[in-house]
């Protein structure tokens, strides 16, 4: 079995099994804790908890202009690499085929050249993010090992993906195997670090959305 077969086979099986295990473990470990739902009466005319939850999820997509002064870079750069990752992950045809193979659903992709360009922008943005983390006094103080591991786990698939499409550094099948292995590592790490925010943000925002909606307060 060569490296590519190992990556496409056992490594991915293992990673996805760990991903499923860890994600459910963590989500249920949180959501099955007591909810403490005894609440004072809602403000008159406040929206339903469901719409408050939705509103919380949506409103938090965009920061208040009041916080832009200090957080502009974090906000803009965060948007760039999140969108970049989303485009590269979900609109590159080989990735769509991967998803189709797993879940049976698919959608049209973007031209590969566009994906390469977005990939480069994403990589640059991620580098800017880690540079910011390592230089900003606030971020240095609040960062943990998790932040750096999660960065590496996110950056490696982008880097190996770019190397693979540009055939840099090694043979294509080696690079693509490393790419898949880096994705496997991403999946393994995902449930145990902050990457999990990709799922948790929904709950976190919705909960605060409901709390604020209940009080008639603005998020």
């Amino acid at each position: 079995m060569d490296l590519l077969d190992f990556a496409r086979g056992p490594a991915l099986y293992f990673a996805l099994a760990v991903f499923a295990l860890g994600t459910l473990w963590r989500l249920l470990g949180i959501l099955l804790l007591p909810w403490g739902l005894i609440r004072s009466p809602a403000r008159e005319g406040s929206p339903s908890p469901f719409s408050s939850a939705l509103k919380g999820i949506v409103v938090k997509l965009w920061p208040h202009k009041e916080f832009m002064a200090g957080g502009f870079f974090t906000f803009i750069n965060g948007y760039i690499f999140h969108l970049g990752l989303a485009i590269v992950v979900f609109l590159f045809v080989p990735h769509i085929l991967f998803i189709k193979n797993l879940f049976g659903i698919s959608w049209p992709g973007l031209p590969s050249n566009v994906i390469y360009a977005v990939g480069v922008i994403t990589a640059v943005s991620l580098i800017a993010a880690i540079a910011n983390r390592m230089t900003s006094p606030v971020l240095r103080l609040i960062s943990r090992v998790d932040d750096y591991i999660s960065w590496v786990m996110t950056f490696l698939p982008v880097l190996t993906g770019l190397l693979a499409v540009s055939h840099l550094g090694a043979r294509y099948e080696t690079l693509i195997a490393l790419h898949i292995l880096s994705v496997a590592a991403f999946f393994v790490w995902f449930p145990f670090g902050k990457l999990m925010h990709a799922f948790l943000f929904v709950f976190s925002r919705a909960m605060t959305g409901v709390r604020f909606g209940h009080r008639g307060a603005q998020l």
Partner: peptide, 21 residues
């Protein structure tokens, strides 16, 4: 540590935006 506190405790990505507030 109820579900809400837990979800909030788990969701931080250390972006530092809260400092500005």
């Amino acid at each position: 540590f109820g579900a809400i506190a837990a979800a909030h405790m788990e969701s931080c990505v250390r972006c530092g935006m809260c400092a500005n507030a």
